[in-house]
């Protein structure tokens, strides 16, 4: 496959130069592209401000706007048949449905008659064995202080020993 020598390695401005013969349609794309870059810049400014909620709002808000623009102008969803747009939104809706129905069990760590013990214990950062040595605490299982004084008669059963303490409590 003979690729012409003009295989451009630079990004951005190179393709900008391509649209020699303009037309109302052309600037339209480059204009949108420019707006997308501006939005990217804004979403980057968020973390510099330092206010967490503002950062999150701008980051995800802008992501949605960028997604809308790419879908509308670049993927021509504005001139596509209705049922295609409906199909894609239905799939997004299904993902929202999955998220909402799974959240009470996975996102929350306690509920009616149950609590997720391990999720609380997992707050101790895992063995991130590197520079920030001081921060990471005892790795792996933290030993739950088993009620050692189990009554004497609890001799090891014939088959596989079932140690007194369980991760359960």
């Amino acid at each position: 496959m003979s690729t012409p020598s003009s295989h451009s390695h630079e990004h951005g401005h190179e393709s900008g130069g391509h649209e020699a013969h303009d037309g109302a349609h052309h600037t339209n794309y480059v204009k949108i592209w420019a707006m997308l870059l501006v939005l990217l810049g804004v979403s980057l400014a968020g973390p510099e401000l330092g206010i967490r909620t503002v950062t999150l709002l701008t980051a995800f808000g802008i992501a949605v706007v960028k997604a809308y623009m790419v879908a509308k102008y670049f993927m021509h969803l504005n001139i596509e048949r209705r049922f295609v747009v409906q199909l894609l939104t239905v799939c997004l809706g299904l993902m929202m449905l999955f998220f909402l129905a799974t959240a009470p069990d996975v996102m929350k760590h306690w509920g009616m008659n149950w609590r997720n013990e391990s999720a609380k214990n997992a707050n101790i950062p895992e063995a991130t064995h590197h520079a920030e040595g001081g921060e990471h605490a005892a790795a792996g299982h933290e030993v739950v202080p088993a009620h050692e004084a189990a009554p004497a008669h609890q001799a090891a059963p014939a088959h596989e020993a079932a140690p007194a303490h369980g991760a359960g409590e």
């Binding site: 149950w114 997720n116 013990e117 999720a119 991760a167």
Partner: peptide, 10 residues
Amino acid sequence: DAIPGRVITG
């Protein structure tokens, strides 16, 4: 059901 890592009461 008993799930490792969870305590379920009833």
